[in-house]
Amino acid sequence: MAGMVEKRGLGLWLTHLGLILGVAVIAFPIWLAFIASTVSQPEIVRPPMPLLPGDRFLENYRDALYSGVNVPVARMLFNSFVMAMGIALGKIAISLLSAFAIVYFRFPGRLVFFWLIFLTLMLPVEVRIVPTYEVAARFGMLNSYPGLIFPLIASATATFLFRQFFLTVPDELAEAARVDGARPMRFFVDILLPMSRTNIAALFVILFIYGWNQYLWPLLITTEPEMNTIVMGIKQMFPAGDDVADWPVIMATSILAMLPPVLVVMFMQKLFVRGLVESEK
């Protein structure tokens, strides 16, 4: 309590000054990007750069969404959304099931499978990208949603997280369900899934952002602009050679690319925090 009393007065102001400065440093580039998306091309190119919003907000965003540079940004947003949702939901579904199998069933090679899954932690996409590309290409998955999603679905982290959670669920619960007559999948659906819902929500937020921010893999596997995702699409908008960059539209695209993860975090924040700090028992 004494510490809190002392903080009143000068200490309080200094603390807040420090915090405001920190926020300003982090937020300034985003602010610049937003300004750049509301002015015209000549205004950006001519120094000094403006620091207050211009009057071309609607025009720039309409241009970006409906025509873009190579392909309409709306299309790229849609692609990214499909990919991020596919990765997040796919990862959750697969890791829930594999954790269920590893924790609740005794089958030959159970430990081997567990370690095999665990090993993939050491092999992120970047390390296995060439063979993965080869496999995806032979399956004819270039420039397709399955090609964007499937290679990124297997997730040791999520399997591990659910395994740890399932291990904290008392054995008696599974036994009570058995006495009640629940077959394994019924137990999984009726008991384990609802008990895991905060974990699922937290994982969904993390995985959605992970999927949304994928850069290298979509860059490799999509060659047609129609299949570009927005994060890599921004890079594709940069001019090659002597072309003129349409900076207002690129900046508008950047701002648009930031919005969905922010919205997901905002709407799922409550569940997300609960999933991280409490395990319901």
Binding site: E172, A176, V179, E280
Partner: peptide
């Protein structure tokens, strides 16, 4: 049969 467990084993949700 029906069984009553030591820690009750009620479904928490």
């Amino acid at each position: 049969i029906a069984m009553v467990f030591q820690n009750y084993a009620l479904y928490p949700h």
